[in-house]
Nucleic acid binder design. Structure first.
Length: 935
RNA sequence: GGGCCUAUAGCUCAGAUGGUUAGAGCGCGCGCCUGAUAAGCGCGAGGUCGAUGGUUCGAUUCCACCUAGGCCCA
């Protein structure tokens, strides 16, 4: 008999599997989206609507994607899907950054010894193939994450059209007068033989010599020079003695290029006796130097830094004067408070060189060897020359102390070798010309920065950044398409010539620059307008890749007819405040006057479980491919939404395990809903709702409103928490648990059961839509099981809207009180359960003693109380003073609970205990209620 | 060294214009159920709110400094 009784119940039925099996299912879902062109249909559907353009920052086409790429692309995908479901026209055109040193070096590595013999066009071809290979690899990896977009038509910075735009934008800068060629010390890698962008330099510890060097202060009269400032005039105490300025440096090899000594204008300098000589150092360094260089002599006199300006010293081993100059950058952190200045070998040095009109002197060639100008040192590699120079200093009695020091020093990002600062001929975009810097700063204040501190970060950077060095002495990139007159050295900057070159590149790609002669880019018979020479040469430097990606706003947003300008949002890691956000801003403001983006959202970096950065050496790297293999891309997507990306985010096995649990809960909640809707007829039962059903509907609307707002604020971790809490708290442990009795035991087509199903259906549809931007695979999988849905994909359905008809804060408040009472009953029941007095709560009958307010509230629900508390019988009474042996609530003052065994017998069908069980001769095991259902 | 940022239970996150025992979910522990079952339900234990000073009647919340961590720069 029991079996037959069970057959009369309406138990959940669904083919929707409990086990997600994501690793296997996800590829099937991807195939479904691709074959059925869901992304394309979504675009068509929204084609007439308001645009919401997220412009993709191009990842570098080298290597497999790492976890940071996954974070970035999934965040973008969540936004694009949310906006699209909301009805915005929001196409996503992904792109790749294809030119640049890393690829070229990889190709060089593959070429081995042949690298220097191979033709530039051949090398460029190999670079192109290399980039194409990784574009394909990364494209598949990005698609595997469930990211929707124009994957068939991405933008590549190496496509002809894009290269053409780079040249056109560069020409714009030339025409507007921003571009100049100058000598300037730049980071230079002697090993890679190239200038490096700031972004291409890494800091690492290096051991360097640390030397204190004497520069003798000599009287000018002896050399017969013009009347100059004489130290002995200022400091009469030192007359007749040998006086030295003392400097400290960790780069002795820059001493041959020394042209000056810098003093801080506000520091006090002291003349100290040292044996029979006098040393001059900053007063603030005296204590440290006493120990360091044994400077213990008597302080003879003091002088302000600004009074030393103009005094000349003698270079320790070259026949040359070294001038005393002033610099605010001089610090008392280390050294002597006097800084050796080589304008060709340092940034501050360069600045001061310009100010004092010093030569930007750098007698070092592109391989890091001294040139003829350096005399005896010619041919010596700079770092090796350190030893030679130290020896020379010793011989000249100019060396005070020599030590080794390990300090943070710039290294080449590719070859990892130490780099040098070296003045070279480079191309620059001036940030002062046309007030570019000022305009950028103004634009920064018009942009919405998320988080808000992004504004301060980029503002400070732009405020202090130097001119943009845009040239590179390399092969794999877009050439600086300028033509130089061999006669006078002037560059041809005529608009018509620049435009013709742009056209050439647009049609044939940048390779054409390397195939043809300079004259081929000029009108036939062209002669230099200045000197009438007919002999020309091409500039052979290429452009910084940051210029490539910086003009994506023009190459993609302006040119792709699907897109529009400016972008609504740029979204990248916070390192891009210096990188792409800045190069894009400069590139756009320089030529168009305004920012290319309205909003810039940044995320942090992915750290390991303890917040440390990932590195191969630490062995704490988490690869997205492995998470996908073990848990599925869906878990990665859930992870992205669960973490607060404003700060750095963490990933670890525990985090993934927790999320997998959370995922199961969400999935099972959906499964339960589906199971109980298998026989739903789809009709409207909204007029038959019980109050608890209206409560559930109210909660659902609140959830919808909160989640929508969270998406709009880009607070995706709130989406995750809200959704999960709704499943756990409101649904699983409360509403659905209570509903089981109605769903299972009531007549299948009863109004009460249908009303519940109607609500469940609404919950399922809404939840599925709400989760879709984040857990897309699962949302789509659920969607397939939903009966009577209209759209073939959840992404073609509109994003859920809160139905105001069901919003009911008063009802929610009222039920919050009921739930609080229910929680107290659970505590009382638990005590009895632990005592083995009851097992299942249906074995219990509860009698509640309540304070007046609570009593009045419960009195409204007399008939519903057993269902609400999931007990067989419940009765509320007015509190009647203190009683012994009953549960007294701590949370609700004056509430106590008596738990008794339910009277009667257990109904074999609904499991409730009732005195009516056994009263039916033809169905002795049933209660009154069940008897009436199945009679 | 400079700019910007972060630090609340094992994990992911809330929170307070400064004011009673700092919240949620997960995990964990102990049970119940076996009609969501590689599920479901209940109860419970976990936090000197990174450290130290200061302002205040009162600070985890404001300020300073420090420590740890991150991005960018030198």
């Amino acid at each position: 008999m029991p079996k037959e009784v069970k057959d009369t119940l309406n138990l959940p039925q669904t083919g929707f599997p409990m086990k997600a099996n994501l690793t296997q299912k996800e590829p099937e879902m991807l195939k479904f989206w691709e074959e059925n062109k869901i992304y394309e249909k979504l675009q068509n559907k929204n084609s007439g609507s308001k645009h919401y353009i997220l412009h993709d920052g191009p990842p570098y086409a080298n290597g497999h994607i790492h976890i940071g790429h996954a974070l970035n692309k999934i965040l973008k995908d969540i936004i694009v899907k949310f906006k699209s479901m909301q009805g915005f026209y929001s196409p996503y055109v992904p792109g790749w950054d294809c030119h640049g040193l890393p690829i070229e070096l990889q190709v060089d590595k593959n070429l081995g010894e042949k690298k220097d013999r191979v033709d530039i066009l051949e090398k460029r071809k190999l670079c192109k193939e290399y980039a194409e290979k990784f574009v394909d690899i990364q494209r598949e990896e990005f698609k595997r994450l469930g990211v929707m977009g124009d994957w068939a038509e991405p933008y590549l910075t190496m496509s002809y059209g894009y290269e053409g735009t780079i040249v056109r934008e560069f020409s714009e800068f030339v025409k507007k007068g921003y571009v100049y060629k100058g000598k300037k010390p730049v980071h230079w890698c002697p090993s890679c033989v190239t200038a490096l962008a700031e972004a291409e330099v890494e800091y690492a510890d290096k051991e360097s010599p640390s030397v204190f060097v004497k520069f003798e202060v000599k009287s000018e009269a002896a050399s017969g020079g013009s009347p100059r400032r004489e130290l002995k005039d200022i400091l009469p105490e030192i007359a007749g003695k040998k006086v030295f300025f003392i400097i400290w440096t960790t780069t002795p090899w820059t001493l041959p290029a020394n042209l000056a000594l810098a003093f801080h204008p506000d520091f006090i300098y002291v003349a100290v006796e040292h044996r029979d000589e006098i040393y001059i150092v900053a007063e603030g360094r005296l204590d440290a130097l006493k120990e360091r260089i044994d400077l213990n002599g008597k302080v003879l006199s003091k002088i302000s830094g600004k009074d030393i300006e103009g005094v000349n010293a003698e270079h320790p081993f070259i026949q040359r004067k070294s001038r005393a100059v002033l610099g605010e950058f001089v610090s008392l952190e280390e050294g002597t408070g006097i800084v050796h200045i080589a304008p060709g070998h340092g940034e501050d040095d360069y600045g001061i060189g310009l100010k004092y009109g010093l030569d930007i002197y750098a007698p070092v060639d592109d391989k890091g060897k001294f040139t003829k100008q350096a005399g005896e040192l010619e041919g010596e590699f700079v770092f090796k020359a350190n030893a030679v120079i130290i020896e020379t200093l010793k011989n000249k009695n100019a060396l005070i102390k020599e030590e080794k020091i390990t300090h943070s020093y710039p290294h080449c990002w590719r070859c990892k070798k130490p780099v040098i600062f070296r003045a070279t001929e480079q191309w620059f975009i001036s940030v002062e010309h046309n007030n570019l810097r000022g305009k950028c700063l103004e634009e920064i204040d018009r942009v919405n920065w998320i988080p808000t501190w992004g504004r301060d970060r980029i503002y400070n950077m732009v405020s202090s950044r130097p001119d943009w060095c845009i040239s590179r002495q390399r092969a794999w990139g877009v050439p600086i398409t300028l033509i130089r007159c061999e006669g006078c050295g002037e560059f041809v900057k005529k608009d018509s010539v620049l435009d013709a070159i742009t056209k050439h590149i647009e049609e044939n790609g940048a390779d054409i620059w390397f195939m043809k002669k300079a004259e081929d880019f000029l009108p036939s018979g062209y002669k230099c307008e200045k000197c009438s020479s007919a002999s020309f040469s091409k500039e052979m430097d290429i452009l910084d890749v940051w210029f490539d990606s910086g003009v994506s706003h023009a190459a993609v947003m302006k040119k792709n007819p699907k897109l529009s300008w400016p972008a609504d949002i740029y979204l990248e890691g916070s390192d891009q405040h210096r990188g792409w956000f800045q190069s894009s801003l400069l590139a756009s403001v320089g030529t168009k006057g305004t920012s290319p983006y309205k909003t810039v959202l940044t995320h942090g970096f992915v750290m390991d479980g303890s917040g440390k950065k990932m590195s191969k050496s630490l062995g704490n790297v988490v690869a997205p491919q492995e998470v996908i293999k073990a848990n599925g891309a869906e878990i990665l997507r859930l992870w992205v939404s669960a973490e607060d990306y404003r700060d750095d985010v963490r990933i670890s096995k525990e985090i993934i395990d927790r999320l997998t649990e959370a995922y199961r809960k969400i999935r099972n909640t959906a499964r339960f809903l589906l199971g109980n809707l298998s026989d739903f007829d789809g009709k409207d039962y909204s007029n038959d709702l019980l109050e608890i059903d209206r409560w559930a509907m109210a909660r659902l609307q609140t959830l919808t409103a909160k989640i929508t707002s969270a998406y709009e604020r880009f607070d995706f971790h709130e989406v995750y928490h809200l959704l999960h809490n709704f499943c756990v708290v409101d649904m699983s442990s409360f509403y659905l648990d209570i509903l089981k009795d109605r769903l299972y035991t009531f007549k299948s087509d009863s109004k009460e059961r249908r009303a519940a199903q109607w609500v469940l259906n609404r919950i399922l549809l809404t939840m599925t839509g709400l989760m879709a931007p984040v857990i897309s695979f699962t949302a789509e999988e659920i969607w397939r099981f939903i009966a009577g849905k209209k759209e073939e994909s959840v992404f073609l359905s509109p994003f859920p809207k809160a139905d105001e008809k069901y919003l009911d804060p008063a009802l929610e408040d009222k039920w919050a009180k009921l739930i609080a009472i229910r929680n107290e009953i659970n505590k009382a029941l638990e005590i009895k359960r632990q005592n083995k007095f009851i097992g299942n709560s249906l074995e219990a009958k509860v009698i509640l003693y309540l304070p007046e307010k609570a009593f009045n509230l419960l009195n409204e629900y007399k008939e519903f109380l057993p269902a609400l508390f999931i007990v067989s019988s419940a009765e509320a009474r007015q509190a009647a003073g203190k009683m012994d042996g009953v549960y007294e609530s701590e949370e609700i003052k004056g509430m106590s609970v008596i738990v008794e065994r339910a009277s009667g017998k257990k109904c074999e069908r609904c499991w409730n205990w009732s005195t009516s069980v056994g009263t039916y001769s033809n169905a002795a095991e049933l209660c009154h209620r069940c008897y009436n259902v199945i009679k």
